[in-house]
């Protein structure tokens, strides 16, 4: 699962995108891992993440049997407690931070907690290296994204790619990203409403609403 590796953008564009995730290894440290996965998320929640997920649902979730008034009064807030409570099976859990400071403070607490789970950081190469150094640990392994090979020009423009690739499983379609860009540019939705819509499609909870908000704002201002 490389659902956070191939976010489109330059390293400088990941200044507001730090993902910490924990994963148990089958047969090595998965006994009673659910409790430790919950503990991981509880620690993350104390450091003001912008999204969290438990590989089944994120802090922004779709709803069933909505009332028609929802079209005028939609909740755009994240629900972190719901994510923690819903961890029932062993899997990957993640938290997204919008600053390196918050990510580092969270990482320091995770080191202290010594959960025994593998903990990874997904961001720019340099960003993760510096965060590890500042917390007094050394990187164990690193997986580099070498980007996309698209010789047949299937991919859309960079604005759409930056928004849609924040769900690495491809649940935020190019068309939805385009639609949200248009709706924000034309003043038909606020950026908060648009990013909540985008984030609801990412069941892993690794979509970064703060980065999406910045990208949508930049797009709106560029057009003005």
């Amino acid at each position: 699962m490389t659902n956070t590796l191939h976010r489109y953008g330059k390293a400088a564009g990941f200044e507001d995108d730090y993902i910490l995730f924990a994963i148990p290894c089958k047969g090595k440290n998965d006994e009673e891992a659910v409790k430790r996965l919950k503990e991981f998320l509880e620690i993350c929640a104390r450091h003001h993440p912008v999204n969290m997920g438990n590989s089944t649902s994120g802090a922004y979730r779709p709803s069933q049997e909505l009332h028609p008034t929802i079209h005028w009064s939609r909740n755009t807030k994240a629900d972190y407690n719901g994510v923690i409570a819903a961890v029932e099976k062993i899997g990957t859990v993640a938290a997204v931070f919008s600053t390196r400071k918050k990510a580092e403070e969270c990482l320091a607490d995770l080191i202290e907690a010594d959960l025994g789970l593998s903990i990874n950081m997904s961001t720019s190469v340099e960003g993760a290296h510096r965060a590890a150094e500042n917390c007094g640990i050394h990187r164990h392994s690193v997986e580099y994204s070498l980007g996309f090979l698209d010789p047949h020009d299937h991919l859309p423009n960079s604005q759409v790619l930056e928004l849609s690739t924040m769900c690495g499983h491809g649940m935020v379609s190019f068309n939805l990203a385009r639609k949200m860009l248009d709706m924000v540019r034309e003043g038909r939705r606020t950026t908060d409403q648009a990013v909540a819509t985008l984030a609801r499609f990412c069941p892993c909870g690794v979509y970064n609403p703060e980065r999406a908000k910045r990208l949508l704002e930049e797009s709106r201002k560029r057009q003005a």
Partner: peptide, 27 residues
């Protein structure tokens, strides 16, 4: 690997970094 990728002309802007905090805990 990083210098080799650089020599081959690949930009690696982003990475997933294992922070080395995992250990075997199964009993």
């Amino acid at each position: 690997l990083a210098p080799l990728l650089d020599d081959l002309g690949y930009d690696s802007e982003r990475a997933k970094t294992n922070l080395g905090l995992g250990r075997v805990t199964n009993t």
